[in-house]
Design a protein around this nucleic acid. Structure first.
Lengths: 173, 173
DNA sequence: ATAGAGTAGTCACAATGAGACTAAGAATGG
DNA sequence: CCATTCTTAGTCTCATTGTGACTACTCTAT
């Protein structure tokens, strides 16, 4: 059998929603529209949401639960997260990202999912700061000549102050 | 005839190299490896470089110039930028990016190309600051509660201080 | 001679992204 | 009463991007 690759951020995000409560593709897709809570961070169009669900089912992280009549429309196929899926997404939600560049999407998706369901973000924020403190420390000293290094320095400084501001807001912040 | 879409950043970057001097795919691809000057900003694998060249030729921005014996290897196909291609890339190099998120790749590619060939970056940097000053100004005030807005604020601040630091280094900086 | 390393370019396939399409049921309007 | 239109629900197709493996050519070292 072909080895399953790790879920993408999109797939994890969809699984995150599904782990909160059983749902169906169309409803999940609403969260990921540009004006949705998750869509503000990561917009995902409908076909992609359905593809992500297909993969999650293939991987054993989600399964069909039932078909229900739709809200004025065709039947909907309700899916739910499996225990393996819930374990997987819980581990992902607790783990900090490795690169500064993943803060923008992956880390913000995690924060959004945690806050949606009223879970505390304190631990994740603390771990994220620890995970990147080495990166931030390596950027001390005078401004470098190279413009790429200069960019890294100033954006890393922005990211560091973001994490500090997050940390200053007690639990749930 | 199908309307040509605008070149992607990758295509512009390849065209930028080609506009400096006629060259061939393999040599161009070297600049875009992770350790190359352009690759530090935007890495592009060989197949993608050749595809970009195909498109540039289709679009009339590049054309085959000659075939030459390779450096210990097969013949190489040398391409050159057409006048239309040179015009196009010159205009692109002079134009600031519209969104903060495009600074990281598109703007840094422009800077890199300008510096490679010894051209001044002053004008582009000044225009880029003007182009984003509205965005930066809109972020004044106390830290927002929403974590997505908080992220935007702190990273925009990082980007603004990067552009200021760039601006402080006279011509060519 | 032959095995390796670097040069030059191609191929096939997977993943992503965007738009248009089917289809069902409810509401509207002449 | 029938046609239109809106929203819900899901699918299909195609273009673009990204990745690894592949061919082939030339020189060098063993």
């Amino acid at each position: 059998m072909p080895t399953q690759r790790d879920p993408s951020t999109t797939e994890y995000a969809v699984l995150g929603i599904l782990a909160e409560a059983p749902s169906h593709g169309f409803a999940i897709a609403r969260h990921f529209r540009p004006d949705g809570d998750l869509g503000r961070v990561l917009t995902v169009r409908r076909p992609l949401v359905y593809r992500a669900l297909d993969r999650l089912v293939e991987a054993g992280y989600a399964e069909p639960a039932s078909t229900e009549p739709g809200d004025s429309g065709p039947q909907r196929v309700v899916l739910r997260a499996t225990p393996a899926g819930r374990r997987r997404v819980r581990a992902w939600l607790g783990a900090p990202v490795v690169h500064v560049r993943d803060l923008r999407i992956e880390f913000l998706v995690k924060l959004t999912l945690l806050r949606r369901s009223g879970r505390s973000t304190e631990r994740l924020v603390a771990r994220q700061r620890e995970a990147l403190e080495g990166t931030f420390a390596a950027l001390d000293g005078p401004d470098p000549d190279d413009h790429v290094d200069l960019w890294r320095r100033h954006t890393a400084a922005g990211a560091a102050s973001f994490l500090e501001a997050l940390g200053r807001r007690g639990p749930g912040g």
